[in-house]
Design a protein around this nucleic acid. Structure first.
Lengths: 252, 252
DNA sequence: ATACAGTCGATCGTCGACGATCAAGGGGAG
DNA sequence: CTCCCCTTGATCGTCGACGATCGACTGTAT
């Protein structure tokens, strides 16, 4: 867990390969982020600007910018004037993320129902998930799942909601990745999204909200947390919302 | 609204003064952010790295980093290879922010009640708000109000919740600033926080959640939005949550 | 008068180098 | 043997310069 200082050996560390598309900073960002998410860089690993730069064949400037973005995303931590390191996660972290995600996606569900947004992209993503599950492609499943939740937020039509999810997506991906890996049957992961879709299409806000919360509780929350050895009391259970008839109550 | 290109005149543009504390990038960030929030830079204004750098007496690198952070915060937009500009906001933006804030702070309220967190810092902030209101200090009120909401999220003890609020705080500040400016009596702004405090201390989660939502509805949402000329239907009304008895329902 | 193409200028993206700062390791005193 | 100070090394923070790209302007043809 600890390759702190003086890891300067020669060993076969992960290669990040030359990058091309977009700005070099974008490329560096994708490369490093991918390496972290795929686990090629483990928690506590040191990320040295100079080393990364020469491994990718670029200067320090783009790498530096990439690392700053990763700091924003909380995938790495930075000790000023010392170094940047891949973050470590505890079960508590995942519980916190789950709770936050629950709040955010509940809003998304509410807005989706309210605006009668199209569910087609979501259905497509579930299809992708099923296909990946059939092929036993774990990262494919996780990938589709992340995009499912991303699309859920996007479909709500609230730019800031989307943006917040995006800033959390790296964390979400790591949580989902760990969770799915400890999960029994991949096919279940996909099929668990079906009742959610159904509820979103039901036209009843509170059903959709409850479905989202239940879904999260199954995936990363409650049951997932216990699978990961965390404390189930740290996560909020799905709340049964009452029947508030739709249409704005316009208090006043 | 449009000082696009060729604003290179001599006029008395806002001075950002030399900066000192922390890293230069931190200083540049604070300086530019402050100028935007205080309205010294208006929507659509162009932010040229070179110009800002020499105005602050630093190199482009720290300024560049500062601007990147502001992009993350959505206070400025960047057209790659072209320029960076102060963002423009519509009433729709404020409605969206209000909705998101409602989701986030509802979670905060729930967690605060659940963990029996101390309300002392929040009370102190309301005191500060009242003091500023008595002195007719608008920015003082807004400042305290932002910190109140920040502290609300912090008190929940969920690091990611806090972090999300922080990433939105610039937006929140602008929304509050505009709202308070159009509001009638500053003293009311402070006193509107009292029922919220009371509800947070009541020990009943749903009361706290409802209070938070009502509070936001009064401040930036619903009524605030209409004051700003926006569409009230774009914001969610406070929801009357049912009586879920407290203590974790620990389903399963 | 209008539309289009070529040229010009401004701004950003990237680079390599310097200096400041902090953690780690070695040596000496108690 | 333990503790503290100092040296040493590595890494980041910042800088100034170069090149690439894009928008704006001018001149011309229709």
């Amino acid at each position: 867990m600890r390759n702190d200082v003086a890891d300067g050996g020669a060993g076969g560390r992960p290669r990040l390969g030359r990058l091309k598309l977009g700005s070099l900073a974008d490329g560096a960002y994708e490369a490093v982020r991918g390496s972290i998410i795929r686990g090629e860089f483990g928690p506590g690993d040191r990320l040295v600007e100079t080393r990364l730069a020469e491994e990718m064949g670029v200067s320090r400037a783009p790498v530096r910018e990439a690392l700053k973005r990763l700091v924003e995303e909380q995938l790495v931590v930075e000790k000023p004037r010392y170094g940047t390191f891949v973050r470590e996660f505890t079960a508590r972290d995942f519980a916190d993320i789950y709770n936050l995600l629950g709040a955010i996606e509940s809003l998304a569900a509410r807005l989706i129902v309210r605006e009668n947004a199209s569910l087609e992209p979501l259905q497509a993503l579930v299809g992708e998930m099923e296909r990946a599950a059939r092929e036993g492609d774990l990262v494919g499943v996780v990938d589709a799942e992340v995009r499912f939740h991303e699309e859920l937020c996007a479909a709500a039509g609230n730019r800031y909601l989307s943006s917040v999810f995006h800033s959390l997506s790296g964390l979400v991906r790591m949580a989902l990745s760990l969770d799915d890996a400890t999960y029994g049957d991949l096919a279940d992961v996909a099929s668990e999204h079906l009742p959610l879709l159904e509820a979103l299409g039901s036209g009843v806000e509170d059903r959709a909200v409850f479905a989202v919360q239940s879904h999260l509780h199954g995936i990363v929350g409650g049951e997932g947390i216990t699978r990961l050895g965390g404390d189930p009391d740290a996560v909020l259970p799905p709340l049964v919302y009452p029947i508030e008839p739709d249409g704005p109550a316009s208090r006043g």
